[in-house]
Simulated assay, not measured.
Amino acid sequence: MTEHRLNRRSRFHQRGLSFFGLVFVGVFAVAAFAIGGQSIPIFLENQAIRKAAAKAAREGSSVPDVRTIFDKAAQIDDIKSIKGADLEVTKRNDKIVVSYQYSREIALAGPAYLVYRFNEQTK
């Protein structure tokens, strides 16, 4: 090919993002930011529930004690997803084990939801 043709081809060959590509990336970034912003409090609450359940298992000596200790910690940490009555309290080798399960939803669009399901127990 001649030098003139090569220069002409490279002049029309563009690199980078198109407008629609930029819009797509922008929409994706906004959606990820919105979902992440709603997910962070859910995971922070789960950490508080873990801590309260561990404290209740450590300090409680009976099922009502464990539930009361959990409810007091839930009031302090503003836990709304689960209550002491929702805890399953068992004994394993003279050690109290607290199990719980719950779910939280984030509305996405229309009938679509993002659901987080938590199913954990103390050790």
Rank of each mutant, 00 (worst) to 15 (best):
K55N: 09
N119V: 01
T90L: 07
I96E: 01
A48L: 01
E88I: 12
V89Y: 01
I76T: 13
G26N: 10
R67E: 00
G84Y: 00
A109G: 04
E120V: 08
A74P: 11
P111D: 15
S103T: 08
V27W: 08
Q38F: 10
F24Q: 10
S62M: 07
A29W: 12
L87R: 00
P111R: 15
S10V: 10
L22M: 15
A34Q: 07
Q14R: 15
I106K: 05
A74S: 12
K72D: 00
T122K: 01
R15I: 13
E120H: 08
G21C: 10
G37E: 12
V27G: 11
T68P: 01
P111G: 13
K91L: 02
R58D: 07
S61L: 04
G36Q: 02
V63F: 00
A109M: 15
Q101H: 07
K95E: 01
S61P: 02
S81W: 05
V23M: 13
A56C: 04
A56F: 00
S10P: 02
K80S: 14
V115S: 03
S81G: 06
E3H: 14
S61W: 03
G84D: 01
I79A: 01
F20G: 09
A32Q: 04
L6Q: 10
R117Q: 11
K123L: 05
P41H: 11
Q14G: 09
I76V: 15
A52R: 13
D86A: 03
E3W: 13
A29C: 14
T90A: 02
S62A: 06
S61M: 03
A112R: 12
V25W: 11
I106N: 12
D86C: 03
S39C: 05
I40A: 10
S10K: 08
E120S: 12
Q38A: 08
E45I: 06
F28V: 13
G110W: 10
K95S: 01
M1K: 10
E105S: 13
V98P: 01
S62T: 13
I79L: 03
A48W: 00
Q101T: 11
T90F: 05
R67C: 01
P111E: 14
D86H: 00
F33P: 09
K72N: 07
T68W: 00
R9W: 09
A52M: 05
Y113N: 14
P64D: 03
A107M: 08
V27N: 08
S81F: 04
V115I: 10
P41S: 07
A32G: 14
S62E: 06
I96Y: 00
K51Y: 05
A73F: 06
Q121M: 07
Q14H: 12
R117E: 07
L44T: 11
R15F: 15
I79E: 03
I96T: 02
A29F: 13
V66R: 07
F20D: 09
N46D: 09
R104E: 15
P41F: 12
L44C: 04
A85Q: 06
R92M: 04
I82V: 14
S10A: 05
N119H: 03
Y100A: 10
G21E: 03
K123M: 07
A52S: 14
S18M: 09
V30T: 05
G21H: 03
M1Q: 15
A32I: 15
L22D: 08
G110Q: 11
A34E: 07
D78Y: 10
R117P: 05
G37V: 07
A48N: 08
A112M: 15
L108R: 07
A85G: 06
R117V: 13
